[in-house]
């Protein structure tokens, strides 16, 4: 029997994988994609809890999360392209001007 707990556990695993990915990858776009993974994991958790409580508030919140994620991706990638145009490099390690 699959209870919402399973889904929440899966969401936890996906979230942790996404978080580690953000820290380990160097390509800016891949980091962004890991962030999307984290957001998706959270969405899954929301939907599972909506099923748990029997009302649709969790689903509505997940819906809003999707919308916000979309707009965030748009702006983030626009920034990324404009950075790439000047620096010709997509590696986040090259943006280290804040070094001591």
């Amino acid at each position: 029997m699959i209870s919402p707990a399973h889904y929440v556990a899966l969401a936890v695993i996906l979230f942790v994988i996404g978080a580690v990915g953000v820290l380990v990858r160097r390509n800016a776009i891949v980091i962004f994609m890991c962030v999307e993974l984290m957001l998706n994991a959270v969405n899954l958790a929301f939907v599972a809890f909506a099923r748990l409580h029997g009302n649709l508030d969790g689903q509505v919140i997940a819906f809003f999360v999707m919308v916000v994620a979309a707009s965030e991706v748009v702006v983030g990638l626009a920034i990324l392209t404009s950075i790439f145009r000047t620096r010709k490099s997509a590696s986040v390690d090259d943006a280290n001007l804040l070094k001591y």
Binding site: P4, Y7, E36, N43, V47, R51, Q59, M66, A70, L77
Partner: peptide, 28 residues
């Protein structure tokens, strides 16, 4: 889990639009 609307929105918007946007930027 009984969220058909969200399922379709996920495919259409998230996978279909947002991820494709990622691919476009990757190409650039």
């Amino acid at each position: 889990q009984g969220a058909p609307f969200l399922a379709f929105v996920q495919v259409i918007v998230y996978t279909g639009a947002v991820l494709m946007l990622f691919l476009f930027v990757l190409m650039i």
